[in-house]
Nucleic acid binder design. Structure first.
Length: 291
DNA sequence: CCACAGGACGGCT
DNA sequence: AGCCGTCCTGTG
C-alpha cells in the first residue's frame, strides 16, 4: 500500500458528477472542494477535475495508472460510442448531451453482486448507508489523509456473520439473501472468476442462481462489474418509464412487458443497449419533471 | 397516522 | 406462462 498521485488530460468523455451520480456505484462521496473520494478494493482514491486535467491521488496496493485505466475503463472510446448512439434519434442525442461524461466503471464482481442484492426494492441513500455500515463493521480499516475508510468486506470476512447480524445493520428482508449468497460463493457453488470467460447469457444464468439475484440485479451486475457486458438492458421502474414515454406510449406504463422493452432496446441500440440504457436512465432520473 | 417507493420470490391461477 | 401479495425502512 502506498500513496500515489497521477494527473491526466481531461476530455469531454469524463465528468465526475456523471460517472458517480448515474446510479452505478455506491461508495463515492462528494467532498467540500468538489472532488470525489471512494474506496476501491483495499484502497482509497480521490478524484478532482478542472478544465484541463483530471487529478487522482490515493492509497493503493497496485500502480495508480493500472488501477485507474482498469476501473474507469479508460481505453474504451466513448466518443465513438456516443457518436454512434446519437445518430439513432433525437432522444439519444438529448440524453447523451446531458450525460456526456458517463463512463461505466469496472467494479469488483463480488462487491457488485452484494451491492445490487442490497439495491433490490431500495433507494440510493439507504443502499449507501447499508454498504457503509457493512464495510465499517466487517471490512478492513484504511487510513487516508487522516480519515478512516473501510474496504468492502470479502466473502471470507462475512463467513461467520449471522442473518440476525445482517438485519441489525439495516438490511431488512435482504438479510437472508445476503447470507445465502455469501455462503453459496464461499462453498464454491458458483465460481465468480469463471464468469468472465462465459458468454453473456450463460453468465446471466449463473448469476440468477444466486439468492436475491433476479433479472434486474443480474443485468446490473453484468453491466457495472468487471463482467462489463453492454449487450444487456437492465429494466427498472425508471427505464420502463422512459422507454414507454419515448417509444411505446402505452397509457398504463405498468402494462408494458419487459420483453417488449427489451425487444425495442435491442432493435434500436443493438450491442450498445447497456450503455444506451445508462444515458436514458440518468437523463430521466434527473429530468423527471420535464413533460 | 397513512401512502408510497423500490425488486425478488413463492404461491396462485 | 403471468399476476399478486409479502418482505423492510425512509420520506413526505
Amino acid at each position: 500500500m502506498k500513496e500515489q498521485e497521477l494527473t491526466i488530460e481531461k476530455n469531454q468523455d469524463f465528468e465526475l458528477k456523471d460517472i458517480f451520480d448515474c446510479g452505478q456505484c455506491f461508495r463515492w462521496n462528494k467532498q467540500e472542494d468538489g472532488s470525489y473520494t471512494g474506496v476501491i478494493k483495499n484502497g482509497v482514491l480521490n478524484v478532482n477535475c478542472d478544465n484541463e486535467n483530471i487529478y487522482f491521488k490515493g492509497i493503493l496496493n497496485d500502480n495508480i495508472d493500472t488501477i485507474i485505466n482498469q476501473y474507469f475503463d479508460l481505453n474504451r472510446d466513448y466518443s465513438k460510442i456516443k457518436q454512434d448512439l446519437s445518430k439513432i434519434d433525437q432522444y439519444m442525442e438529448t440524453s447523451i448531451k446531458y450525460g456526456q461524461g458517463i463512463r461505466i466503471l469496472n467494479q469488483d464482481l463480488w462487491e457488485t453482486i452484494i451491492s445490487f442484492i442490497i439495491s433490490a426494492n431500495n433507494n440510493i441513500p439507504r443502499i449507501k448507508g447499508i454498504i457503509e455500515r457493512l464495510s465499517q463493521k466487517y471490512g478492513t480499516k484504511i487510513i487516508f489523509e487522516n480519515e478512516d475508510y473501510y474496504s468492502f468486506p470479502t466473502a471470507s470476512q462475512l463467513k461467520d456473520v449471522t442473518v440476525a447480524e445482517f438485519r441489525e445493520i439495516g438490511l431488512g428482508f435482504r438479510d437472508i439473501r445476503l447470507y445465502e449468497t455469501t455462503h453459496m460463493i464461499l462453498n464454491n457453488e458458483i465460481n465468480l472468476e469463471s464468469l468472465h470467460k462465459l458468454d453473456t447469457q450463460s453468465a446471466r444464468a449463473q448469476l440468477l442462481t444466486l439468492s436475491g439475484v433476479g433479472p434486474k440485479v443480474a443485468d446490473c451486475i453484468l453491466l457495472f462489474s468487471t463482467l462489463k457486458r453492454f449487450d444487456i438492458f437492465p429494466i427498472d421502474v425508471w427505464v420502463r418509464r422512459v422507454m414507454n414515454e419515448l417509444y411505446i406510449k402505452n397509457p398504463d406504463e405498468n402494462k408494458v412487458s419487459k420483453k417488449l422493452i427489451n425487444d425495442i432496446a435491442f432493435e434500436k441500440f443493438g450491442n450498445l443497449a447497456g450503455i444506451a440504457q445508462q444515458y436514458l436512465f440518468y437523463w430521466k432520473r434527473e429530468n423527471w419533471f420535464i413533460r
